[in-house]
Design a binder for these strands. Structure first.
Lengths: 364, 364
DNA sequence: TGCGTCACAGAAAACGTTTTCCTGGATCGG
DNA sequence: CCGATCCAGGAAAACGTTTTCTGTGACGCA
């Protein structure tokens, strides 16, 4: 364990606050007892005053609240949880260490929860059932009120044994067991959004280049492509080209669609299954001298900024609104915790189209 | 709030466990009281048996442990925290919603902590001081034992007011206040590693293309470049080219180094400040017909797989080992919580070089 | 035999809240 | 003037642990 150290001479910060407690006072933490004592009331009254419960003279309530403010009182969530049997705490288990999907979900979840006084435990389980077990146990000991299980493929469940667990659970971007509650982006509608946009811009021969069959996202996006085409009165341009989720496959697909071995009819638009494919395709088109968006419009899927902004021109792409997915999942979980009945099933939340230049519309 | 719903007919899972409690038993949770009762001992004895404390007959201890196993007893961390004044809980505050840096840090932290019974709260503060305040308050109420503050630039502090906070804190990939404890990758050593590798492969004219001055990482990596060159007895190839952290800049830099307006001497290697620059540079080299790695070796920084694997040939790059950074930060924070004295200052942890084909070595 | 020591186990206090129940006084209706 | 009602506020139990203190035999030793 060799590493460089950079020291500085300054003193360590954070000396404990001086002994200003009203009651004899133990540690640095301010308790409700001190607040009550300062306000000249009992602990019970102080609690009621702070929680807007019970009945009491307004001036008493204010006196207590003033004392709490003055002492910078923060109620101990542990003690509160112990008696109320609610920890105001959630567990987020994810096997998506790379974070492409989980991070926006986590951010949306965390944001929505903190406003409601709920905090989120992060558990990184690396597709390792043993590690999953340990984290699940930890969550139970910490008395979480519910669990969010977030994955990186909508058609794979997390490697978790949930039997014997009586906790509210929502599944995000992963497979759910029968009777479970799931949240995903609506891939089909998102794809339709993109294709309808292309059709609306006058494109008539809209091809589809996508990832490996076997990913549930592939048929969903394909269905959206077909549906939007049908609604626009257009035939599909051949069959979808299915390969990998990679730039390299996009590059090769461009050759199939526009190279010498392509048919006499060429697409005037390509809807790509993700942004990496779109990027590879556009790189190839540039090499072949095919103009984007003049000759061919291109739309991607994921709205991964790092790719969408790097293409020339910038890439129009479908955004899965994963932050909103995380948010909704959290809110629903809170409902379940509150005992509200929640319909089993998978909620597919709407995507939105982020228009940039690659599709030939005005967008930035 | 319009979204598609997919319902299924199955029943909701998780009926509460039947009434098998020994004592009258309230909710579904098994308490130590039930364990004690089942083992025929007092609560105090049960506690001692389970925590390997106190002295007692081995068979008593085993009887208690057997009962705990049989009932699937999980101690309530809240209750434990209340009396022990330790919550075995940490807060991770980050303003890196994009997750490029934070996610590996969080994964390393979470992994190291769960093995020690500590759980991590995730708080996404979006560079918004108000949100930061709310999250900080939440962490105090939840009685976290310590705080990890993770950023996305080593030279910027998080927008947090830490005054009046007497909690152990470590700063990760962000600026620390005087007297604070910081963890970062050792950019200088990482850069030196890369350049030394190039020199070892016989490259003599090693250029440096990097990000904007103003990022602390830029001078650090430059220093590493210079140091390794000096140690190899080589002169720097001109001055570093400083621009943006983008593919586009890498592309343009290639023009400056290898285009018609370049000097008579061309580099035989380029050390890039990050992988995006390296990628743009390699794309340009391909267009100009400059062979990689034959004519020019290229090394990047960050080892961002999505870029490093997408270049042709695959990109050799410096990995900042952020997971290990998160791990070490967590372990040190635990030490601080345990009252061990920890030297103020910034720890710079070693990077490692991931060798692929772009540098001309054997690697995969 | 008497006393100190020891091993084992239980009783009870403590942690910081919330909540239920109770009380003393004021108010009100008759 | 008397009882019923109501209000402000307090006492105490409860939540599930850990820890300290106490008690009780058994044993060793003088």
């Amino acid at each position: 364990m060799t590493h460089t150290m950079v020291l500085d001479g300054s003193e360590i910060a954070g000396d404990p606050p001086s002994e200003k407690d009203d009651a004899p006072g133990r540690t640095g933490r301010v308790t409700i007892r001190q607040v009550a004592s300062m306000a000249g009331v009992s602990v019970a009254t102080a609690s009621k005053a702070l929680n807007e419960r019970g009945s009491m003279m307004p001036q008493t309530r204010e006196r207590v609240q003033a004392a709490a403010r003055a002492l910078n009182f923060r109620p101990n969530a542990m003690a509160r949880a112990l008696v109320s049997q609610r920890s105001f705490t959630l567990g987020l288990l994810t096997n998506d260490t790379y974070g492409r999907f989980t991070l926006p979900v986590a951010a949306g979840l965390s944001e929505a929860m903190v406003d409601r006084g709920v905090s989120v435990f992060l558990c990184a389980i690396e597709d390792d059932p043993e590690r999953a077990r340990v984290n699940l146990d930890a969550m139970q000991e910490k008395c979480v009120d519910g669990l969010v299980l977030a994955g990186k493929r909508v058609d794979r469940a997390l490697p978790l044994d949930l039997s014997g667990l009586s906790l509210p659970i929502v599944h995000v971007y992963s497979a759910r067991p029968p009777g479970g509650i799931g949240f995903e982006p609506d891939d089909e509608a998102g794809a339709a959004l993109a294709v309808a946009h292309l059709a609306g811009l006058g494109r008539r021969r809209i091809a589809h280049v996508t990832g490996p069959v076997g990913f549930a996202a592939v048929p969903m996006r394909e269905t959206g492509w077909r549906r939007a085409l049908a609604e626009a009165g257009l035939p599909p341009f051949g069959e979808p080209l299915s390969g990998e989720w990679s730039e390299d496959f996009g590059f090769r697909a461009a050759g199939l669609l526009f190279g010498p071995e392509a048919g006499p009819e060429r697409p005037d638009a390509v809807f790509c299954g993700n942004d990496q494919i779109a990027r590879g395709l556009m790189d190839a088109l540039a090499l072949m001298g095919v103009g984007v968006p003049d000759e061919v419009a291109v739309v991607g899927f994921d709205n991964w900024e790092i790719f969408a902004q790097a293409t020339r021109p910038a890439l129009t792409s479908v955004d899965m609104a994963l932050k909103e997915v995380g948010r909704q999942a959290g809110l629903t979980l809170l409902d379940m915790i509150d005992g509200k009945r929640v319909e089993p099933g998978t909620r597919r939340l709407p995507c939105r189209l982020v228009v940039r230049r690659s599709c030939g519309a005005a967008g930035g």
